[in-house]
Protein backbone atom coordinates (compact mmCIF):
# COMPACT_ATOMS: atom_id res chain seq x y z
CA UNK A 1 0.00 0.00 0.00
CA UNK A 2 1.03 3.52 -0.59
CA UNK A 3 1.74 5.71 2.39
CA UNK A 4 2.55 9.32 1.68
CA UNK A 5 4.43 10.68 4.66
CA UNK A 6 2.46 13.46 6.35
CA UNK A 7 5.13 16.15 6.65
CA UNK A 8 5.10 19.42 8.55
CA UNK A 9 6.30 22.66 7.07
CA UNK A 10 8.82 24.35 9.29
CA UNK A 11 9.41 28.03 9.79
CA UNK A 12 12.80 28.08 11.47
CA UNK A 13 16.17 26.41 11.98
CA UNK A 14 17.84 26.04 15.36
CA UNK A 15 21.15 27.95 15.38
CA UNK A 16 24.24 25.77 15.41
CA UNK A 17 26.46 26.10 18.46
CA UNK A 18 30.20 25.53 18.11
CA UNK A 19 32.09 26.24 21.29
CA UNK A 20 35.52 25.62 22.77
CA UNK A 21 38.94 26.75 21.64
CA UNK A 22 41.25 23.83 20.97
CA UNK A 23 38.89 20.92 20.79
CA UNK A 24 35.43 22.05 19.82
CA UNK A 25 31.99 20.70 20.57
CA UNK A 26 28.81 21.08 18.54
CA UNK A 27 25.07 20.91 18.86
CA UNK A 28 21.95 22.42 17.30
CA UNK A 29 21.60 23.28 13.63
CA UNK A 30 18.56 21.08 13.03
CA UNK A 31 15.50 22.02 11.03
CA UNK A 32 12.74 19.81 12.45
CA UNK A 33 11.21 18.51 15.68
CA UNK A 34 13.50 16.20 17.67
CA UNK A 35 14.82 13.35 15.50
CA UNK A 36 12.22 13.80 12.77
CA UNK A 37 14.79 12.78 10.18
CA UNK A 38 12.06 12.30 7.58
CA UNK A 39 11.32 16.00 7.41
CA UNK A 40 14.49 17.79 8.42
CA UNK A 41 18.21 17.99 8.60
CA UNK A 42 20.21 17.11 11.71
CA UNK A 43 23.87 18.07 11.38
CA UNK A 44 24.78 17.21 15.00
CA UNK A 45 23.85 14.85 17.73
CA UNK A 46 22.89 16.44 21.03
CA UNK A 47 25.85 16.97 23.32
CA UNK A 48 26.43 15.64 26.82
CA UNK A 49 28.62 17.65 29.19
CA UNK A 50 29.99 16.03 32.35
CA UNK A 51 29.34 18.10 35.45
CA UNK A 52 32.17 18.83 37.86
CA UNK A 53 32.28 21.24 40.80
CA UNK A 54 34.85 23.64 42.23
CA UNK A 55 34.87 21.96 45.63
CA UNK A 56 34.05 18.61 47.18
CA UNK A 57 30.32 18.31 46.48
CA UNK A 58 28.11 18.81 49.50
CA UNK A 59 25.25 16.67 48.37
CA UNK A 60 26.51 13.91 46.08
CA UNK A 61 24.88 10.67 47.19
CA UNK A 62 26.75 7.42 47.57
CA UNK A 63 26.26 6.29 43.96
CA UNK A 64 28.10 9.37 42.70
CA UNK A 65 30.63 9.38 45.50
CA UNK A 66 31.71 5.88 44.47
CA UNK A 67 32.65 7.22 41.06
CA UNK A 68 34.14 10.59 41.90
CA UNK A 69 35.41 10.63 45.47
CA UNK A 70 38.98 9.85 44.44
CA UNK A 71 39.15 12.92 42.20
CA UNK A 72 36.64 15.45 43.47
CA UNK A 73 38.93 17.31 45.83
CA UNK A 74 40.83 18.67 42.83
CA UNK A 75 38.85 20.29 40.02
CA UNK A 76 41.55 19.65 37.45
CA UNK A 77 41.90 15.97 38.29
CA UNK A 78 38.16 15.65 38.24
CA UNK A 79 38.03 17.16 34.75
CA UNK A 80 40.83 14.89 33.52
CA UNK A 81 38.98 11.91 34.92
CA UNK A 82 35.88 12.91 32.94
CA UNK A 83 38.05 13.30 29.86
CA UNK A 84 39.31 9.78 30.37
CA UNK A 85 35.69 8.65 30.50
CA UNK A 86 35.16 10.10 27.04
CA UNK A 87 33.65 13.48 27.94
CA UNK A 88 33.26 15.80 24.95
CA UNK A 89 32.63 18.82 27.15
CA UNK A 90 32.86 19.78 30.82
CA UNK A 91 30.35 21.77 32.84
CA UNK A 92 31.98 23.38 35.85
CA UNK A 93 29.52 24.40 38.55
CA UNK A 94 30.91 26.98 40.94
CA UNK A 95 29.05 25.72 43.99
CA UNK A 96 31.58 27.03 46.49
CA UNK A 97 30.61 30.60 45.63
CA UNK A 98 27.10 30.15 47.05
CA UNK A 99 26.54 32.21 50.21
CA UNK A 100 25.19 29.14 52.02
CA UNK A 101 28.26 27.17 51.00
CA UNK A 102 31.77 28.64 51.33
CA UNK A 103 30.76 31.99 49.85
CA UNK A 104 34.09 31.91 48.04
CA UNK A 105 35.29 34.97 46.15
CA UNK A 106 34.79 35.50 42.44
CA UNK A 107 38.56 35.75 42.03
CA UNK A 108 39.06 32.30 43.50
CA UNK A 109 36.54 30.92 41.01
CA UNK A 110 38.27 32.77 38.19
CA UNK A 111 41.62 31.18 39.13
CA UNK A 112 40.10 27.73 39.00
CA UNK A 113 38.57 28.43 35.62
CA UNK A 114 41.86 29.75 34.24
CA UNK A 115 43.75 26.75 35.46
CA UNK A 116 41.24 24.38 33.98
CA UNK A 117 41.29 26.13 30.63
CA UNK A 118 45.06 26.13 30.43
CA UNK A 119 45.40 22.46 31.30
CA UNK A 120 42.40 20.89 29.64
CA UNK A 121 41.59 20.95 25.99
CA UNK A 122 37.86 20.28 26.32
CA UNK A 123 35.16 22.88 25.68
CA UNK A 124 33.90 24.37 28.93
CA UNK A 125 30.50 25.35 30.28
CA UNK A 126 30.77 27.60 33.33
CA UNK A 127 27.83 27.69 35.72
CA UNK A 128 27.36 29.86 38.78
CA UNK A 129 25.81 28.58 41.97
CA UNK A 130 22.25 29.48 41.00
CA UNK A 131 22.18 32.29 43.52
CA UNK A 132 20.89 35.21 41.51
CA UNK A 133 22.80 37.99 43.27
CA UNK A 134 26.01 36.11 43.87
CA UNK A 135 26.10 34.89 40.27
CA UNK A 136 25.93 38.52 39.22
CA UNK A 137 29.19 39.07 41.14
CA UNK A 138 30.93 35.88 40.11
CA UNK A 139 30.07 35.42 36.45
CA UNK A 140 31.52 38.74 35.16
CA UNK A 141 34.92 37.98 36.70
CA UNK A 142 34.86 34.42 35.49
CA UNK A 143 33.70 35.39 32.01
CA UNK A 144 36.58 37.78 31.78
CA UNK A 145 39.11 35.21 32.98
CA UNK A 146 37.97 32.87 30.22
CA UNK A 147 37.87 35.48 27.48
CA UNK A 148 38.80 34.02 24.11
CA UNK A 149 38.06 30.45 25.12
CA UNK A 150 34.66 30.53 23.51
CA UNK A 151 32.81 29.01 26.47
CA UNK A 152 29.17 28.76 27.45
CA UNK A 153 28.34 30.64 30.62
CA UNK A 154 25.24 30.83 32.76
CA UNK A 155 22.77 31.12 33.98
CA UNK A 156 21.25 34.48 33.21
CA UNK A 157 17.91 34.85 34.98
CA UNK A 158 15.30 37.56 35.23
CA UNK A 159 16.96 38.88 38.39
CA UNK A 160 20.52 39.19 37.08
CA UNK A 161 20.46 39.04 33.32
CA UNK A 162 21.84 42.53 32.75
CA UNK A 163 25.16 41.82 34.42
CA UNK A 164 25.44 38.26 33.22
CA UNK A 165 24.62 39.15 29.61
CA UNK A 166 27.08 42.02 29.58
CA UNK A 167 29.83 39.78 30.85
CA UNK A 168 29.09 36.99 28.37
CA UNK A 169 29.19 39.58 25.63
CA UNK A 170 32.48 41.05 26.80
CA UNK A 171 34.03 37.61 27.17
CA UNK A 172 32.80 36.45 23.77
CA UNK A 173 30.88 33.52 25.21
CA UNK A 174 27.63 31.73 24.59
CA UNK A 175 24.92 32.26 27.19
CA UNK A 176 22.42 30.07 29.04
CA UNK A 177 19.21 31.96 29.80
CA UNK A 178 17.00 30.34 32.42
CA UNK A 179 13.36 31.05 33.20
CA UNK A 180 10.71 29.33 35.30
CA UNK A 181 8.98 26.66 33.26
CA UNK A 182 6.96 28.99 31.14
CA UNK A 183 7.06 29.61 27.39
CA UNK A 184 6.28 33.29 27.69
CA UNK A 185 8.83 33.89 30.42
CA UNK A 186 11.49 32.21 28.29
CA UNK A 187 10.59 34.37 25.34
CA UNK A 188 10.44 37.54 27.42
CA UNK A 189 13.90 36.92 28.86
CA UNK A 190 15.37 36.32 25.41
CA UNK A 191 13.83 39.53 24.14
CA UNK A 192 15.41 41.46 27.00
CA UNK A 193 18.75 39.80 26.36
CA UNK A 194 18.78 40.54 22.64
CA UNK A 195 17.67 44.10 23.30
CA UNK A 196 20.99 44.53 25.09
CA UNK A 197 22.71 43.69 21.80
CA UNK A 198 23.53 40.10 22.65
CA UNK A 199 23.29 37.95 19.50
CA UNK A 200 20.25 35.70 19.41
CA UNK A 201 22.23 32.82 17.89
CA UNK A 202 24.41 32.64 20.99
CA UNK A 203 21.58 32.05 23.46
CA UNK A 204 20.78 28.61 24.84
CA UNK A 205 17.41 28.31 26.56
CA UNK A 206 17.21 26.62 29.96
CA UNK A 207 13.47 26.19 30.44
CA UNK A 208 14.23 24.86 33.95
CA UNK A 209 14.87 21.21 34.38
CA UNK A 210 13.39 18.77 36.87
CA UNK A 211 13.73 15.09 37.68
CA UNK A 212 11.53 12.17 36.78
CA UNK A 213 8.73 12.14 39.34
CA UNK A 214 9.41 15.68 40.57
CA UNK A 215 7.99 18.14 38.09
CA UNK A 216 9.26 16.15 35.09
CA UNK A 217 6.04 16.53 33.09
CA UNK A 218 6.18 20.31 33.36
CA UNK A 219 9.70 20.50 31.95
CA UNK A 220 8.84 17.96 29.25
CA UNK A 221 5.82 19.90 28.01
CA UNK A 222 7.40 23.33 28.27
CA UNK A 223 10.30 22.08 26.16
CA UNK A 224 7.92 20.71 23.56
CA UNK A 225 6.01 23.96 23.48
CA UNK A 226 9.14 26.06 23.13
CA UNK A 227 10.42 23.89 20.28
CA UNK A 228 7.06 23.95 18.48
CA UNK A 229 6.74 27.73 18.87
CA UNK A 230 10.29 28.22 17.62
CA UNK A 231 10.80 25.84 14.78
CA UNK A 232 7.24 25.23 13.55
CA UNK A 233 5.61 28.56 14.22
CA UNK A 234 8.74 30.56 13.54
CA UNK A 235 9.04 32.54 16.78
CA UNK A 236 12.70 33.50 16.50
CA UNK A 237 13.03 34.24 20.23
CA UNK A 238 12.19 30.61 20.93
CA UNK A 239 13.87 29.05 17.91
CA UNK A 240 17.01 28.30 19.91
CA UNK A 241 18.83 25.30 21.34
CA UNK A 242 17.80 24.09 24.80
CA UNK A 243 19.79 22.73 27.71
CA UNK A 244 18.58 20.21 30.30
CA UNK A 245 20.52 20.45 33.55
CA UNK A 246 19.62 16.89 34.39
CA UNK A 247 22.13 15.73 37.00
CA UNK A 248 21.54 18.64 39.33
CA UNK A 249 17.86 17.76 39.79
CA UNK A 250 18.03 13.99 39.51
CA UNK A 251 20.63 13.40 42.19
CA UNK A 252 18.57 15.24 44.81
CA UNK A 253 15.74 12.75 44.60
CA UNK A 254 15.14 10.01 47.09
CA UNK A 255 15.07 7.47 44.27
CA UNK A 256 18.79 8.02 43.74
CA UNK A 257 19.59 7.61 47.42
CA UNK A 258 17.34 5.25 49.35
CA UNK A 259 18.82 1.80 49.81
CA UNK A 260 16.93 -1.33 48.90
CA UNK A 261 16.85 -2.37 52.54
CA UNK A 262 15.05 0.88 53.39
CA UNK A 263 12.50 0.57 50.60
CA UNK A 264 12.40 -3.00 49.30
CA UNK A 265 9.66 -2.29 46.78
CA UNK A 266 11.95 0.13 44.92
CA UNK A 267 14.54 -2.53 44.13
CA UNK A 268 18.27 -2.22 43.67
CA UNK A 269 19.67 1.27 44.31
CA UNK A 270 22.53 1.26 41.79
CA UNK A 271 20.37 0.46 38.78
CA UNK A 272 17.53 2.65 39.98
CA UNK A 273 19.73 5.68 40.58
CA UNK A 274 21.60 5.70 37.33
CA UNK A 275 18.50 4.90 35.31
CA UNK A 276 16.72 7.78 37.04
CA UNK A 277 19.29 10.03 35.42
CA UNK A 278 19.40 8.18 32.08
CA UNK A 279 15.64 8.09 31.58
CA UNK A 280 15.21 11.73 32.62
CA UNK A 281 17.94 12.67 30.12
CA UNK A 282 16.63 10.56 27.22
CA UNK A 283 13.12 11.90 27.76
CA UNK A 284 14.32 15.47 27.53
CA UNK A 285 16.18 14.64 24.32
CA UNK A 286 12.79 13.65 22.93
CA UNK A 287 11.18 16.88 24.11
CA UNK A 288 13.90 19.01 22.52
CA UNK A 289 17.07 19.27 24.62
CA UNK A 290 20.25 19.76 22.57
CA UNK A 291 22.66 19.92 25.48
CA UNK A 292 22.53 17.69 28.57
CA UNK A 293 24.47 18.29 31.77
CA UNK A 294 24.89 14.95 33.51
CA UNK A 295 26.73 13.28 36.36
CA UNK A 296 26.87 9.50 36.31
CA UNK A 297 29.22 8.04 33.66
CA UNK A 298 27.11 4.88 33.29
CA UNK A 299 24.01 6.99 32.68
CA UNK A 300 25.96 8.99 30.09
CA UNK A 301 26.93 5.78 28.31
CA UNK A 302 23.32 4.68 28.09
CA UNK A 303 22.19 8.04 26.77
CA UNK A 304 24.98 7.91 24.17
CA UNK A 305 23.79 4.51 23.06
CA UNK A 306 20.30 5.93 22.72
CA UNK A 307 21.55 8.82 20.59
CA UNK A 308 23.50 6.50 18.33
CA UNK A 309 20.44 4.33 17.97
CA UNK A 310 18.35 7.38 17.05
CA UNK A 311 20.96 8.47 14.51
CA UNK A 312 21.41 4.95 13.08
Amino acid sequence: MNFSIPKETYAGIIPEIVFGKGKKAYFGGQSALPFHFFEGHFPHKPLIAFEIQDQIPEDYPEELAKTYSSVWDDTLRWARFCESLGAQAIALRLTSTHPDSRDSKPEEAADKVKKLLSEIDLPLIILGSNHTEKDADVLPIVADASRGYNCIIGKAQEGNYKTVVASAMAGGHFLIAMSDLDVNLAKQLNILITQMGFPREKIIIDPMCSALGYGFEYTYSVMERIRIAGILQGDSMLCLPMVADVGFYVWKTKETQASESDIPEWGSLHERALMWEAVTACSFLLSGADLLIMRHPEAVKIVNRFMNDLFS
Partner: peptide, 19 residues
Protein backbone atom coordinates in the same frame (compact mmCIF):
# COMPACT_ATOMS: atom_id res chain seq x y z
CA UNK B 1 13.02 -6.00 38.24
CA UNK B 2 11.62 -3.57 40.78
CA UNK B 3 13.95 -0.70 39.96
CA UNK B 4 12.89 -0.83 36.34
CA UNK B 5 9.22 -0.92 37.23
CA UNK B 6 9.60 2.13 39.44
CA UNK B 7 11.26 4.06 36.62
CA UNK B 8 8.64 3.11 34.05
CA UNK B 9 5.65 3.51 36.37
CA UNK B 10 6.79 6.98 37.35
CA UNK B 11 7.39 8.01 33.76
CA UNK B 12 3.99 6.75 32.70
CA UNK B 13 2.28 8.44 35.64
CA UNK B 14 3.99 11.75 34.87
CA UNK B 15 3.30 11.76 31.18
CA UNK B 16 -0.34 10.71 31.47
CA UNK B 17 -1.13 13.30 34.13
CA UNK B 18 -3.44 16.16 33.22
CA UNK B 19 -1.39 19.23 32.22
Amino acid sequence: PKWKNLVLFTLRQNIYSDP
